[in-house]
């Protein structure tokens, strides 16, 4: 009797223990991958940032030397500034375009699925291919756009040789490749707004613009913040597309921060300095995220 009871209890505690371990086991694979490929390299990067290191020869401890060098590095700050301007243009543009398309495609229209697919398609193409594709469109001597301009008798434009046009080309390509992704998020957000609100507003005689301003936009706030945050982080990390499209040129006109860090690390072989720059970038992006998290009160409405 007694023995059977204790056995039963043992079984029970065994089961609860299993239940308690299970969740950890479920997250284990991801935790391992995250740890091995993200956390450990990040910590190593932090470690490198205090050293002079070329990836081969023994590293030398340098204290805060790398950071002091960066703070006095005009090139670094002007690159950050350029990245900031790029983000300031690209983020609102992506927001507006994605929201606009989402509003159109959230409605019941013919071939909605096809149009959604068409706008979503570019997000599935790798950035390198997007960059190369647009290079064939904007290219100075081989670009389709210049070919068509010459056909209608207009002087070809140096799309990738003039600083202004090169930046414009980068922005157009970025918006084209990213808008579809955020469109999907917006469509989900739009569909989550109860139709009662719209009906009530219409009964009150509100026009389209008013409905948008007073119902759609406020109720989309959590979605909007998410889109802003993601696209801002995207913008600060932009690299492969631009590298393929302009290579950072003409000159350094479209060299943004990640490419700059890449060049320091892998062309100049100064991995310590590049790591320190990455840490600075991490702090900047982390700052944005914290700020937006606070504004959005942790994502709550």
């Amino acid at each position: 009797m007694n023995g059977g009871q204790s056995l039963n209890r043992k079984k029970q505690t065994g089961q609860t223990r299993k239940l308690a371990i299970a969740p950890y086991l479920f997250i284990l694979p991801n935790l391992l991958i995250f740890g091995v490929f993200i956390v450990i390299p990040s910590l190593l990067g932090l470690f490198y940032s205090f050293h002079v290191y070329d990836g081969l020869n023994p590293m030398k401890f340098n204290g805060l030397g790398n950071y002091i060098k960066i703070i006095g590095d005009k090139e670094f700050w002007s690159t950050i500034g350029r990245t900031g301007i790029y983000a300031a243009i690209v983020v609102p543009l992506i927001y507006a375009v994605a929201l606009g398309i989402a509003m159109l495609l959230a409605r019941e229209i013919k071939m909605r699925g096809l149009f959604r697919a068409i706008f979503y398609w570019p997000t599935m193409i790798s950035f390198i291919i997007v960059g190369l594709t647009w290079k064939w469109i904007f290219g100075d001597s081989f670009g389709i756009l210049n070919h068509m301009l010459t056909l209608i008798g207009v002087e070809p434009v140096g799309f990738l040789t003039s600083p202004f046009w090169a930046n414009a080309a980068v922005i157009i390509a970025t918006v084209w490749s990213r808008a579809g992704f955020f469109m999907v998020i917006f469509i989900a957000g739009l569909q989550a707004i109860p139709t009662d609100y719209y009906e009530a507003a219409r009964l009150d005689g509100a026009t389209g613009l008013k409905v948008f301003r007073h119902i759609t936009l406020p109720l989309l706030k959590p979605t909007s913040l998410l889109v802003f945050m993601l696209s801002l982080i995207d913008a600060f990390k932009a690299f492969p597309l631009i590298f393929a499209l302009t290579g950072g040129g003409p000159g350094k006109e479209t060299t943004y921060i990640v490419q700059y860090i890449y060049e320091i690390g892998f062309t100049k072989q100064e991995l310590g300095l590049a790591s320190a720059m990455s840490v600075m970038l991490f702090v900047i992006i982390g700052g944005f995220s914290a700020l937006q998290f606070r504004i959005s009160k942790g994502g709550a409405v």
């Binding site: 290219g139 100075d140 799309f159 040789t161 090169a166």
Partner: peptide, 18 residues
Amino acid sequence: MPESVWLGGENPNNLFRS
């Protein structure tokens, strides 16, 4: 010399081949 090579990153091989 075309500006597109040094400023626009155009491949000089392709230009010569054209």
